[in-house]
Write a protein that binds this DNA or RNA. Structure first.
Lengths: 151, 151
DNA sequence: TTATCTGCAAACCGTTTGCAAAGTT
DNA sequence: AACTTTGCAAACGGTTTGCAGATAA
């Protein structure tokens, strides 16, 4: 039980919460609440059969509030979460199939410093994501229906 | 009637649409549909008294589809729009009072080029926003209620 | 035992949409 | 006159919440 996060945060360790955290740990990029939920169902077991979506949402919110998770929004407004590691990460996301590639290093640290000095802001964070088409979607014709509707 | 955008896009010029575009033109940063709507109401006149929120949403979507507007999402998932100028812009946003400061130049052009070559992605865009507390909110105590609830 | 957490269903809120009336060309 | 756009109100979909029962400590 690696460095008991639950006790440290004054939270109770429950199957649902543990499952959420595990999914987050094995995810490379930012994940949606829905996605976390689907993966918990997929893995089955104690949590898989009992955990509901609200618990996932609540756990994600709680962990984000405690500072363990980073919350961001995709271009369509859907929220994603990722474990806040030692340093944070940014991703290059394929707008067609959703494939993500991690970008090494954060190109904004210097900018933040300069900007803080220049504007007087106390800069607390940033959001950065790059979008494009991955090689596979560039090559093939259709990875997914290109016309999207609704939200 | 500057370079008739409406004709160019095969759209009809109506009071509501003109009002949306004007608000967008006089906005420095990304603005929310709600915000656009409020400003249209505030300016009164023909459009001010008749335009409804759906029209604002529809106009924003249409213009974004035509490529005239850039659509992005704030950290809470609310969508914002900004006129796509010659070059695009990024902003430093105060998380307390919402004040925005434009960041000169885009620090990502070089990164995009390097990353495209490295990963094989065709990079089509990015989202970047910095967050922090502006000098005024840093100094004063309260610019707005700090605890927020709901979405 | 006690305070926290969960499942469920309903509320929320930003956004989209169907439809008939109004407006633009 | 033909076609597009609007206002309204209702639908949508992701996210949050109230509540009573289950659970961790």
């Amino acid at each position: 039980m690696e460095r008991d996060i639950w006790k440290a945060c004054a939270l109770k360790s429950t199957p649902g919460r543990r499952a959420v955290l595990e999914v987050l740990e094995e995810s490379r990029g930012p994940v949606t609440a829905e996605e976390v939920y689907r993966r918990i169902l997929a893995r089955g077991g104690e949590a898989g059969s009992r955990t509901c979506l609200s618990t996932v949402y609540r756990t994600l919110s709680t962990l984000a509030e405690k500072g363990l998770l980073l919350r961001s929004a995709g271009p369509d407004g859907v929220l994603s979460y990722q474990l806040r590691g030692t340093g944070h990460r940014h991703y290059l996301i394929c707008t067609r199939c959703g494939a993500t590639v991690e970008i090494g290093g954060c190109p904004l640290e210097e900018l933040e410093r300069a900007l803080g000095a220049e504007t007087g802001f106390a800069i607390t964070g940033h959001s950065l994501e790059l979008y494009g088409l991955c090689p596979r979607c560039l090559g093939g014709g259709d990875g997914e229906s290109p016309g999207r509707k609704g939200r």
